[in-house]
Design a protein around this nucleic acid. Sequence first.
RNA 1: GUGGGCGUAGCGUAGUGGUUAACGCGUCAGGUUGUGGCCCUGAAGAUCGAGGGUUCAAAUCCCUCCGUCCACCCCA
Length: 441
Amino acid sequence: MSGRFQTPRGTEDILAGEQPYWRMIEEAIGEITRLFGYERIDTPSFEAAALFEKGTGDTTDIVEKEMYTFEDRGGEILSLTPEATPAICRAYLQHGLSNRPQPVRLFTTARMFRYSRPQLGRLRQFTQFDCEAIGSPAALVDAELIELHWRFYERLGLRNLELRLGSIDDLEPRRDYLDRLRAYYRPLRERLTADSQRRLERNPLRLLDSNDARDQELRAGAPTIIDQLSEEAARHFAGVRDALTAAGVPFTVDPLLVRGLDYYNRTVWEIVPVGDSRAQSSIGAGGRYDGLLETLGGRATPASGFATGHERIILELMRQEITVAGPPAPDVFVVHAGKGASRAAVRAGADLRAAGLATFVGEAGRSLRAQLRRANGSGARIAVIIGEDELARGTAALKDLRAEDGEQEEAPLGEVAARIAGRLRPRAGGRAGAEDAPAAQ
RNA sequence: GUGGGCGUAGCGUAGUGGUUAACGCGUCAGGUUGUGGCCCUGAAGAUCGAGGGUUCAAAUCCCUCCGUCCACCCCA
């Protein structure tokens, strides 16, 4: 309803119905990072604006037109984090993490902020799972990250994904390539789209992944960087491919894969759902960024990492009709009627919860019928009924809501919790299995 | 940032100039004295996204704004 307050453009509330997806993702992150030995780091939601101007690159769209930048009351120029990598690199430098065994393997999940035109899967506030391995130049580290990235989606049950892998060489050799690319396109300039004519000067690599049919036609004859990698980058790339093959991670080499961030070199990858025509379909991407830490004022430190968006993952989970179990129904629903019964109901509720049983207590003043309807709808296994008659006898009626005939037995009020705990968790005893219950599946 | 589609109760929809805006789901109450599911009855709930305009008359036509979706751009 407009006229009332609503979420700001490009933001969303996450209601109970979607929470199971979020929980599943967070659980999968916990598991996959444990398996690969990545440690959690949390950085602030805002940083010095200059961190991203230098790190992300002040010619990128992210910095040029998508940052939430503001001056605080003390005159500091700050930006809400548009991406995690520069922040994590900043933390690495700030805390001297180069003195720990290298590479330092870090992950985070955090809200990111970019002022862009919202679309499905493109929000102004969104959430990323981000992994970085800082301090190693090894191809194996790239492959490890890619494997982690891939297994993460596998663990979520996602199928029909494609891993696109490429290399964009190191900075110096890439200059030569870009010259050749410009030389190829210059005579064709007039036939390019207006956007691509701008790209030609500013960021020629982007000519290669234009979505426009005209551009795509022209690029057929363009030189590809992957066929003329420097010797070192070629060896590195071969190392990544070998390791992925050894790990059993399927990939396709995409000679046209380029990434939008300035700091990438050598290995780049993205993972996309196959058969999803939507533009915002890339659910995760990463690459090596050997120059970034030096750019931020540190010693030259090789590093690699990736990010993947929760919201896009959830969209894809839904598209693939992967359902997630919501929170379990309560064990017990206590219904009550009459003046004194409310107190007894509250007491019974406390006892039941102390015994580890999830318990709802019905609303005072509502008819027994209404409360029992609610009890039935809640999915509870057992209803505890305390009316005036039971109260007078010091008992409660226990009704099995799963049984069609609605069988009931009567129990003294003081024994209600123990009786139900015994019925629902025969082996677990009074603690209802809370101690040694296996982790939720 | 550019171009376009859409916007009716919590959700999903009907209604395209003319009496009190309809239906399904959901919510609440009831179907005799205190007992759920199915079923039945009733009620609440909509300034028809907002503001302005045209008209005797606007949910319906026009303008602006907001939101959303699609394509571009960009990217998670």
